[in-house]
C-alpha cells in the first residue's frame, strides 16, 4: 500500500513546514538545517541510520502486536527492560565477541519478551486491557531500571546511575566500509542490518507461515479465528511476548551498539514514536523500514534544526502525533467490541 505510507510521510513534511513557520523560521532554512543535519554527509547519514535502527525494532514489535489485534503501547518499557537485561549481564560477561554479542541480544529479547508477556498474560488470563497494562508497565520498567542502576547494578566507577561498561568484545562491530567510505568513527553498527533482517523475517512469518496466518486471523477476524480453533488466549500471550521481544532486541542493540552500557536514558521515547512509525508503515514490516528511515531523518535532523535554525526539535513529536491522529481514519482493527474493556 503505497498511498498510505507515502502520503503520511509527505504530510509529515508539510506539517514540519507549518511548525517552522510558527516558530518564525523560513521552511527553507528549517529544512536546510534538517537535511544538512540528517543527510548532508557521511556522519549525518550514519546518525540518521542509528536513529532509524532505534525506531525500527520497537516499530516492528508494535506492528506485530497490532497485526494480532493487540494495542501494544508499551514498546518503551520493553525496550528499556531488554536493554537492562543486556547491560546487566554484559557488564560482567567476558568472552569472544561471537559468543557475547548473540547472548546479549538474546537476553534483550528475553527481557522484552517477559515484559510484553506480562501484559499478554494479564489480557489472556484476566481480560485486562493491554492498552492500560502496557502503559503502566512502561512506568514500572522505568522505576525498576532506575532503582537497579542506582543501587545493585550501579558501576562503582561511574558518577551517574549506570551499569559498568561492556567489555569491547561485547560491542557490536561498526558498519562495514562501503568502498572508501568508512563508518569506524561513527555510532553506526551492524545493528541496522540486524533490524532489517528482523523485518524480513517478520514479513516472511506474516505472509508465508501458518503461525503468521493465525496471528493475522486473530487480529482481523477474531470471532472467525476463535471458531476455527485458534487458541485465542494463547495467541494473545504469544503475540504480546513476541512483540516485546522484538522491542527488547532493540534495547539490547542500543546497549551493545551505541551506549556500551545501560542507563535509563537509553530511549528518548523511541517506544512511543514507534507507534507512529508502525502506523505510517501500514504495519507491513518492509514498509515499516521505509517509515523508520523517514522518522530517522526527523529525529537526527531535529537536533540540527534546533541548533542551527532555532526550531524546537519537539515540533517533530507534534508532527508524529498529528500523523497518528490522521491515520486513525484507516482501519486497523476488525472491531474493538471484542477487545478488553478500556
Amino acid at each position: 500500500m503505497l498511498a498510505g505510507p507515502a502520503g503520511a510521510l509527505v504530510l509529515a513534511f508539510v506539517l514540519a513546514a507549518v511548525a517552522m513557520l510558527i516558530a518564525g523560521v523560513s521552511p527553507l532554512d528549517g529544512f536546510g538545517a534538517l537535511f544538512q543535519g540528517s543527510l548532508g554527509g557521511r556522519r549525518p547519514i550514519a546518525e540518521t541510520l542509528v536513529q532509524t535502527t532505534a525506531l525500527l525494532f520497537p516499530a516492528l514489535g508494535v506492528s506485530l502486536a497490532f497485526r494480532a489485534g493487540l494495542f501494544n503501547i508499551g514498546a518503551e518499557g520493553q525496550l528499556l527492560i531488554g536493554g537492562l537485561f543486556a547491560g546487566a549481564v554484559g557488564a560482567h560477561f567476558a568472552g569472544p565477541g561471537w559468543l557475547v554479542i548473540p547472548v546479549l541480544l538474546l537476553l534483550g529479547m528475553v527481557g522484552g519478551g517477559i515484559w510484553g508477556g506480562i501484559a499478554g498474560w494479564l489480557r489472556a488470563r484476566f481480560n485486562a486491557s493491554e492498552i492500560i497494562s502496557t502503559l503502566m508497565l512502561n512506568f514500572i520498567a522505568l522505576s525498576l531500571a532506575g532503582y537497579l542502576v542506582a543501587g545493585p547494578l550501579k558501576s562503582p566507577l561511574a558518577s551517574g546511575a549506570e551499569t559498568a561498561p561492556l567489555l569491547p568484545s561485547g560491542w557490536l562491530p561498526a558498519f562495514p566500509s562501503l568502498g572508501s567510505i568508512s563508518f569506524g568513527d561513527t555510532r553506526l553498527t551492524i545493528s541496522i542490518l540486524i533490524a532489517i533482517a528482523t523485518a524480513i523475517v517478520l514479513s516472511f512469518v506474516f505472509t508465508r507461515t501458518v503461525f503468521g496466518y493465525e496471528l493475522r486471523a486473530a487480529g482481523e477476524a477474531p470471532e472467525a479465528a476463535r471458531r476455527s480453533g485458534i487458541n485465542m488466549p494463547r495467541m494473545t500471550l504469544i503475540a504480546l511476548a513476541l512483540s516485546g521481544a522484538v522491542a527488547g532486541l532493540g534495547g539490547a542493540a542500543i546497549v551493545t551498539g551505541v551506549l556500551h552500557r545501560f542507563n535509563t536514558q537509553l530511549s528518548p521515547g523511541y517506544g512511543y514514536t514507534a507507534i507512529a512509525v508502525a502506523l505510517v508503515g501500514d504495519l507491513n514490516p518492509l514498509w515499516v523500514c521505509v517509515a523508520a528511515f523517514g522518522f530517522g531523518i526527523l529525529e537526527a535532523g531535529g537536533l540540527a534544526m534546533q541548533a542551527n535554525a532555532g526550531v524546537p526539535k519537539d515540533a517533530i513529536h507534534v508532527i508524529e502525533g498529528l500523523i497518528v491522529l490522521v491515520l486513525a481514519a484507516r482501519r486497523y482493527f476488525a472491531t474493538r467490541a471484542t477487545g478488553a474493556p478500556v
Partner: peptide
C-alpha cells in the same frame, strides 16, 4: 476513526 489510535495521537500531540 479508530478511537484508540486517535487517542494515542492526541497524547503525542
Amino acid at each position: 476513526v479508530d478511537q484508540i489510535v486517535a487517542g494515542v495521537g492526541i497524547n503525542l500531540v
